[in-house]
Simulated assay, not measured.
Amino acid sequence: MSRKRVGILISGRGSNMASLVDAARRDDCAYEIACVISNRPDAPGLQIARNAGIEAVALDHKALGTRDALDAAIHEALLANGAELVVCAGFMRIMTGDFIAKWEGSMINIHPSLLPLFKGLDTHEQALQAGVRVHGCSVHFISAELDAGAIIAQGVVKIGLDDDADTLAARVLPVEHLIYPAVLGALAEGRIRLENGQTVFADDDAASLSILATG
């Protein structure tokens, strides 16, 4: 089986990146990690990638100066490492429309809320302040509008009466680690695609991913 080559973009510790790296070690995995790219040279996730024998690329967004310059450098690094799919795993920079257009349908993100609720930052605190009873995470295709791309799968957790932002985050994170490799695997196998701004599933993938994602 020919595996799809994946480039992972990070800005920090890379816990979701680590879950993707672990999944890629399985013989039946449909993808391999081609490279890990960070906009912060001190991101701890870069060392995790190096320890796993994966090409780690540090690009300092401050030194590069502009979003255009950073995106151009990321694009070149992805191409240089033969990436076919792009995965954002805690990548904390807003991308340019030109960069997004180049990877449209081949680039996904995981966001710690049940989109379209609670876009942006501090999602766990947003959920608690809103008084909702369930929370979770969403995997979606990346679009030009922040956190607004077509949703692929969502993971759900109940909010406890004693939850604060930290305890809620701690329970959502394992669900993220469960659904992200599953979604990326389905994308790599061609069982998911973006068509006219909507997610299209093959066979019963929508149902199976929803079952997998519920916790």
Rank of each mutant, 00 (worst) to 15 (best):
I152P: 08
L161W: 12
P41I: 02
G185N: 15
K119S: 12
L209P: 07
P112D: 12
G97K: 11
I192N: 05
E32V: 04
L121C: 02
G136L: 09
R13I: 13
E176R: 03
T96F: 05
I152C: 05
R40W: 06
G45L: 03
N16V: 00
G149P: 01
A148E: 07
A52E: 02
V172H: 03
D164E: 03
D27C: 01
L70P: 08
A24L: 02
A24F: 04
I110S: 02
L178S: 12
G7H: 06
M92R: 10
A18D: 11
T199Y: 11
H135T: 12
V6N: 06
H177W: 05
L194A: 04
L187E: 00
E176F: 00
P181A: 07
Q129H: 11
D204A: 15
G197A: 11
V21M: 08
V87E: 11
E145K: 12
A169N: 02
S19Q: 01
I94A: 13
T123W: 07
Q198L: 13
R171S: 05
D162Y: 10
D203T: 13
T199F: 11
T199C: 15
S138Y: 03
G53N: 03
L178V: 14
I211G: 14
D122Y: 13
G215P: 15
D28S: 11
L146P: 03
A130Y: 14
A52R: 00
A49E: 01
I179H: 02
M107Q: 09
D22V: 10
A213Q: 10
D28Y: 09
A56T: 04
E104V: 08
R133W: 07
G136W: 06
N51M: 09
D205Q: 15
G155Q: 05
A213T: 09
R171T: 04
A49I: 03
A77D: 08
L121D: 06
G136Y: 04
M92F: 06
V172S: 03
H177E: 03
P112R: 07
V183F: 01
R13Y: 14
A43M: 04
V183Q: 01
D205I: 15
A89S: 14
I159A: 00
V200Q: 14
I179L: 12
L184E: 00
G131R: 05
V134N: 11
A169K: 04
K102S: 14
A170N: 08
A80W: 11
F201Y: 15
A207C: 12
T96W: 06
I54M: 00
S208D: 14
L178R: 15
L46I: 05
G97I: 10
H111R: 09
